[in-house]
């Protein structure tokens, strides 16, 4: 681990001030950043501990919830309002990592965790455009079981590994950010980006920007929501694919639906095409299959991950079926 300075932020302004210099990084639970620093993938010159900032859950005027970014994952998953009104979010968090890690990890940190691509992690032995821009991508023709089938580029085929983020994408969350220019918000689905030619940039945040809170908009039909994660062992493994969905059915027809996929792209994949195909149509198996097929129409498999195309389709159909659609 490269030497660094350590400071603890008393409040948001303090955090921004402390992180103003170059090569600064905010430190939450450390469950990803400390590991990356040990692997010399991340080499910040100073760490600003933001775990002392807001960790409350409070109602918003619009009827949603505002979640302090320093809240621990466990606390968010077990919060009564989240369990009751946004079960997909509790479920997604509980499907991720282990209890110990969820006890440490913060909400803000979870949003910014980096890919698990083996070539990204191997700072000494592999080429990776995300870690060392322009060096090449060894994953393209290498081990790619955990890699992207949607939205990838020749420069990068990595996936974003968070479970929680898949639920946030489905719920249409809003990210509250404090930056040099003041406070702003952005739709969660615009936080992460596709790799293109600059895979070293995971999100649209500028250096020094601090995520202060996540806002869940009111979404009454999210009480009927679910998260299904498919992985290589029963627990404590990253997703091969995952599906977060919320479904509102009225008289056998889809009144509204929200869908997002994990494990398939450089960002949590909001399945807008599938949603559009379903909305207003019959809530039945053929419709679900058709919607899944439409969403995956542009999928591009790599050497090891072609199975994900079929897997994510099947998982989506199963989740929608469980949420109250009739599966024919």
């Amino acid at each position: 681990m490269t030497p660094f300075r350590f400071a603890r932020a008393a409040d948001t302004a303090d955090a921004l001030r402390l992180a103003a210099g170059p090569a600064s990084a905010y430190l939450g639970g450390g469950t990803n950043l400390v590991d990356l620093m040990r692997e010399t993938v991340a080499t910040p010159g100073s760490l600003v501990d933001v775990t002392g900032l807001s960790n409350t859950v409070s109602p918003t005027e619009s009827g949603g919830l505002l979640i302090g970014a320093a809240l621990r994952n466990t606390a968010l998953a077990e919060h009564p309002a989240v369990r009751a009104r946004y079960p997909v979010l509790s479920r997604a968090i509980l499907a991720g990592a282990s209890a110990q890690i969820r006890n440490m990890a913060t909400v803000g940190g979870n949003l910014l965790q980096r890919t698990r691509c083996a070539y990204f992690y191997d700072a000494e032995g592999a080429r990776c455009n995300k870690r060392a821009p322009g060096s090449g991508c060894d994953a393209l023709e290498g081990f790619s079981r955990y890699h992207a089938i949607l939205g990838a580029s020749p420069a990068c085929v990595a996936t974003q590994p968070s479970d929680m983020c898949v639920a946030l994408a489905a719920l249409g969350a809003i990210v509250h950010v404090q930056g040099a220019g003041g406070a702003r918000t952005l739709p969660f689905t615009e936080l992460h980006r596709l790799p293109g030619d600059t895979p070293e940039i995971d999100t649209v945040l500028a250096p020094g920007d601090l995520i202060t809170a996540i806002e869940l908009p009111p979404l009454p039909f999210a009480t009927n929501s679910a998260y299904r994660k498919v992985r290589d062992r029963a627990s404590y493994a990253f997703a091969l694919v995952s599906v977060a969905a919320a479904l509102e059915v009225e008289d056998g027809r889809v009144r509204d639906v929200r869908i997002a996929f994990g494990g398939v792209a450089h960002k949590p994949w909001r399945a807008l095409t599938a949603e559009a195909a379903l909305r207003g149509g019959p809530a039945d198996g053929p419709a679900f299959h058709a919607a899944a097929a439409a969403e995956l129409a542009d999928a591009q498999p790599l050497r090891d991950n072609g199975f994900k195309i079929e897997l994510v389709k099947r998982t989506l159909v199963a989740v929608l079926g469980d949420l109250g659609g009739a599966v024919a």
Binding site: R116, A118, Y119, Y121, D122, A126, Y146, D232, R233
Partner: peptide, 13 residues
């Protein structure tokens, strides 16, 4: 390429 206990999967409880 999976020189770790995250991606080399051992059975969990």
């Amino acid at each position: 390429m999976n020189a770790n206990l995250s991606e080399y999967h051992l059975p969990v409880h």
